[in-house]
Nucleic acid binder design. Structure first.
Lengths: 195, 195
DNA sequence: GTCTTAACTGAGCGCTCACTCAGTTTTTTA
DNA sequence: TAAAAAACTGAGTGAGCGCTCAGTTAAGAC
């Protein structure tokens, strides 16, 4: 039963980084949680910073894959219906990848992005991915008439931000996302149709 | 020229905490930045955690004061106009208290809030303050007819979240807040009037 | 001027933590 | 099955950190 401690380390690190933060998570904790020696962590990931970057890289790849899958599979009638569906998709995704989204909502990654181009690239890719989804749906809606005259990109950013904010409030324990779900859909519909 | 290093320490700590985070900011850096000895920091604030809490406490008091001042001074014609004005007010406030808002957008404070009731109370007070502002304007608008039938509290949360998201995107260098300002106003107007 | 109190200093201490490395165990290769 | 490669171990190390404390300097009281 040697081998494959790598995966376990990665999973433990995701949990700990998202719950406690980068600096506050210690190699000894990851070690204890996985049963792997600290040396093993270094053996696989070189150092703590690189472990963090590896997690972010995999997360980005996952998101992009989900995005591609969604775009292929889902064929909804109108662009407006698609926007609403993407809101649900996003909230469900956040639910099933809770810890990694928590990581995304931490500020830390953005601090690191200032120093490291790799961090920056990954973060931008993730956000762009989501905004692109909304933008695409808005453009479709403008064509099929379900969405009025709005600037697609900017409106996509606004709506994505609105949804993400609710998610963040939920994460921070300030307001419950579930009770705001209907308002979220209502608000997006109004933003898109009044034009 | 003795005395009043306290203020300097507070200002330096705000800058450093918001730029680098709690754990990543070292007493030695605050010391170097202010010219005060590390012992002086401890003399005034007991320890690092308490220094952080002091900053948050002062910030909350500032916000509440600004809120009270705004509510007394500003008398706009309609509730809808008031909502739009609050959006500007919020963005201006964030601009003039940039570092403290950055602190608010860090996740750290919320992690600490889980352990410390004091942190939690301050954070909730700050958010509640802003949501209250929006809610009050929405209720006024519903009475004067400028705003349609919407659930005031929930809609206030949604709009506040939307505005705060744009601010955060700006902070992270993802999208520019200035170019989204018009869309922000347009979106809020649509959310509030279509009902 | 003298005494008291508050503000301030910085070398030093104890501790934590990321990372090293020489060695062991398992898996793969031939 | 023997040799080579890969995976893994954990005591040890050294750098860095928050905080202490005995002492110094300045401000205010009388």
């Amino acid at each position: 039963m040697k081998k494959n401690k790598k995966e376990a380390i990665l999973n433990a690190a995701i949990k700990l980084f998202s719950a406690k933060g980068f600096k506050e998570t210690h190699m000894s904790e990851i070690s204890k949680m996985t049963g792997a020696a600290e040396g093993t962590i270094v053996y696989h990931f070189k150092n703590k910073e690189n472990l963090f970057l590896t997690i972010l890289t995999e997360f980005q790849e996952n998101i992009v894959a989900e995005f591609a899958r969604y775009n292929k599979e889902k064929k909804l009638k109108t662009g407006l219906a698609m926007v609403e569906d993407i809101i649900s998709f996003y909230l469900q995704l956040a639910n099933s990848m809770e810890d990694r989204f928590l990581l995304l909502h931490r500020h830390e990654a953005y601090v690191r992005a200032h120093a490291s181009a790799a961090f920056r690239t990954h973060l931008e890719a993730i956000y762009t991915c989501f905004v692109d989804m909304f933008e695409r749906a808005i453009n479709l809606g403008k064509k099929d008439g379900s969405i009025g005259v709005v600037p697609a990109r900017k409106t996509a950013i606004i709506i994505f931000g609105m949804v993400d904010a609710v998610l963040r409030f939920n994460t921070y324990g300030l307001y419950n996302a579930g009770t705001l779900f209907n308002e979220l859909n209502l608000a997006s519909r109004r933003i898109l149709t009044a034009g």
